[in-house]
């Protein structure tokens, strides 16, 4: 059996304990928040932490609650299955519910957590392989090497951001609550990701993501998630699309957003999408709305050029960008989704 490298396991019971442990261990530590990404990566020796800090016993990190201001707060250790099945999330944040329901397969959604998914490591066909495989190829920028196998001569890692829930959270304007032993900070999720495949998250080694706070969208909020993958289960996204439409009482789009993932090292917001969609009225003038949607799909196509960083046909992934952009927006407008082939 493929074995985990050895490490010391810490299982703190409280957040301060966890933060103190993290402060002591620093970059030597890995945080286990479900383990469905971390443990395979450790088996592949992509990470060899000397200390693993498991958060499963830490109290207060799970649960979905409505704050006084109507915001929805989700503990970082809340299982993805719980996010997917929550009536509150489904009603208020449909794109997030849909995205969470499409992560991996049923068992991994029980084990995997929202925080873990947000912090999912970037993925690449030349990275997510065993140590033997990578040594045979020659190590790359992401881990232990100096070259890129995706882009010949490339000096920047282009491993793909692959978390399904992130684009949904970005359209929803989520705020990440990040704790360190000496302070807590609130970080808009938009400012959290950087286009660096080696580490695409702005999280210090001694910080923990503790909570995801999502402002309550207005009553006319519509959202949907589209996921492109080969199989109907288990697979990571080859493309993820989150769409948001906020309709006025009159049914006119007041605000819109479209965020894509699995293309590059950071998720990408389609520039100009909001402007193109604002003012259209899917219910009253569907043809005009569809024209606007097609315009946004075209913007998405132009702004996104997938690289061969993930397995499979990257040109096809590129062709699917406008298709999934359009379908996801239409699904959102119709109060439907997810956009998924099964």
């Amino acid at each position: 059996m493929l074995r985990l490298p050895s490490f010391r396991l810490e299982q703190p019971d409280t957040l301060p304990q966890a933060l103190a442990l993290l402060d002591q261990a620093g970059p030597e530590a890995a945080v286990l928040a479900g383990g469905t990404d971390l443990l395979p990566n450790m088996k592949h020796e992509l990470r060899r932490p000397s200390v693993v800090i498991a958060l499963s016993r830490v109290k207060g990190l799970t649960g979905i609650a409505e704050a006084a201001d109507g915001a929805i707060e989700i503990g970082a250790m809340t299982p993805l299955a719980e996010v997917a099945q929550s009536a509150l999330v489904a009603r208020a944040l449909p794109a997030l519910a849909q995205a969470a329901a499409l992560v991996a397969g049923p068992q991994l959604r029980q084990r995997g957590t929202l925080g873990g998914n947000v912090l999912l490591d970037t993925r690449c066909q030349y990275v997510n392989q065993s140590h033997f495989w990578r040594s045979a190829l020659g190590f790359c920028l992401k881990k232990d090497g100096t070259v890129c196998h995706v882009v010949a001569g490339g000096s920047r890692c282009v491993a793909a951001a692959s978390a399904d829930t992130v684009p949904a959270l970005m359209t929803l304007g989520a705020v990440l609550e990040v704790a360190r032993h000496d302070r807590t900070r609130q970080l808009p999720i938009d400012a959290f990701f950087v286009a660096d495949g080696i580490v695409n998250r702005r999280l210090e080694p001694t910080e923990l993501l503790t909570r995801v706070r999502v402002p309550r969208p207005a009553a006319g909020h519509r959202g949907a998630y589209g996921k492109l993958r080969e199989r109907g289960s288990i697979d990571f996204p080859l493309l993820g699309v989150a769409a948001r439409l906020d309709l006025s009482e009159a049914g006119v789009v007041e605000h819109a957003d479209l965020v894509l993932t699995s293309l590059a090292a950071a998720p990408r917001r389609v520039a100009g999408a909001a402007d193109a969609l604002r003012g259209s009225a899917p219910g009253h003038a569907p043809a005009e709305f569809e024209t606007a949607v097609r315009r946004v799909a075209e913007l998405a196509r132009r702004q996104c050029r997938p690289l061969p960083n993930l397995p499979g046909d990257h040109e096809w992934r590129g062709e699917m960008v406008p298709v999934y952009a359009r379908r996801t927006l239409l699904a959102a407008a119709a109060g439907q989704g997810p956009v998924h082939h099964v």
Binding site: M1, L9, Q11, L32, T36, P40, L108, Q110, R111
Partner: peptide, 13 residues
């Protein structure tokens, strides 16, 4: 009571 993939669960957890 929930299905879990035991090759991705640490025994101590």
């Amino acid at each position: 009571g929930q299905p879990a993939i035991s090759c991705l669960v640490l025994a101590r957890e």
